[in-house]
Amino acid sequence: MHPEFVGILLNNNTYRRISSGRIGTESLANYEEAAAMYGLVPCFFTIHHISLDTGMVTGYIPIPSGYRRVYIPIPRAIHMRAIYHNRRELKRIEDLIKQGIFVFNGRTRYGKDTIHHMLEQDSGLSNALPHTVKATPVSIRSMLSQHGDLVLKPCSGSIGIGIMRLKRSTGHSQLTYSRSSPSAKGWRTVTLAEGKLHPLIYQRIKRAPFLAQERIPLAEYRGRPFDIRVTVQRGGSGSWEIAGMFAKTSPPQTFVSNIAQGGSAYQVPDILTRCMPNAPVGETLERIAEFSLHIARILSLFIPYAADFGLDIGITEDGRLYFIECNGCDQRYGFLEAGMGEAWKNSYRNPMAFVRYLYDNDTWPPH
């Protein structure tokens, strides 16, 4: 009997490192272990190794001594773990889907403004979405007057790059920003005269679309605001499931909690117990889970072939939940940072269980 392959579509850098064994934040071993649980063999490749003309792909499969390059028919399901912006690459993904290949997460790269608009269609989420508008000099001044504390974020981008905070104080305002690449270094805060915007704001919103968003007064741990990353995935039943969640705190002198920007990861029950001692932890965890599942279901109405979301959920001191951001290519290493090895493995098992669902049912599940 021939093995049933599942495609794992990696970015170029990760793929090139397979032969050396130094992969980075992805765990190929987790894919291999999870795939084997469901009678599957993972084949690792990039978009450039796929030939639509021949229906074949070149990639690596695991063997006892490491990995072997193979030339096989394109697997019927491909778990996409790369981000593409190039039109040619995006068209190739669309062509795979048109040929009946299940490319899950194939269309999850949507701007923050688009995601926000999708969620606005659900009236039940109206109180859980921060006030958000397109960033212009006029709208920024108006929002600052209305809310007093804003986050200015690029519509496209990840791991906190380009994000700024603008806070109004008596007679002046303060802008916190970073010019550096993803790290906790390079952050600075400057004071601005009342009504004035820093030249950097003009530069950035002119160069790329930005959002001006009300900053939610997040609950704090040891004086640092935190939010909660919830990994929501389709699993063996085809339905949305919670793979796990961990809390992220911002490093000193910053306001972003991204792990790549120096944020720290903690287990959510520990954080809630210390920061919200009067709220039943189990009940709060259940509310966060249901809230996240609801968001995933709403987004899947608009995003075809979505099967994996990393949702950033904010919580205030009085327990109110807010949607902050959605990541279509969830970085899973935060679970390891938080000492949650089982949840880390779960985030690899669920996609492989979902592949088994697709192979057994030969159809995409209902929303």
Rank of each mutant, 00 (worst) to 15 (best):
L211K: 06
L211E: 08
T191I: 13
R188K: 14
E241W: 08
V232C: 09
A219H: 01
R224C: 15
L218D: 05
L197R: 08
Q213A: 03
T191M: 11
R207H: 14
L192Y: 13
P209I: 01
T231M: 12
Y221S: 07
Y221G: 00
E220T: 13
Y221W: 10
W240F: 06
H198G: 00
G223T: 05
G236C: 05
G235M: 05
E241D: 09
I242D: 08
E194S: 12
I216F: 02
P225W: 12
L197P: 08
A219T: 06
E194M: 11
D227V: 01
T231F: 09
A243M: 10
W240C: 09
P199L: 02
R188T: 15
L192W: 08
Y202T: 14
L197G: 11
Q233D: 09
R224Q: 15
R215V: 05
A193S: 12
G223N: 02
Y221A: 06
A208H: 14
V230H: 05
A208V: 15
R188V: 12
Y202R: 14
G236M: 02
G238E: 08
A219G: 10
R207N: 15
R229V: 07
L200G: 02
A193F: 00
E194C: 04
G235H: 07
R229H: 04
A212F: 03
R188E: 15
E220G: 03
E214G: 01
E214D: 06
G223M: 05
K196H: 13
V230W: 06
P217A: 06
R229A: 10
E241G: 03
L211C: 09
A219S: 13
A243L: 11
S239R: 11
L192D: 14
S237T: 15
E194Q: 12
E214K: 15
I216G: 03
P217K: 03
Y202N: 14
I205W: 04
G238P: 07
R222G: 04
G195C: 13
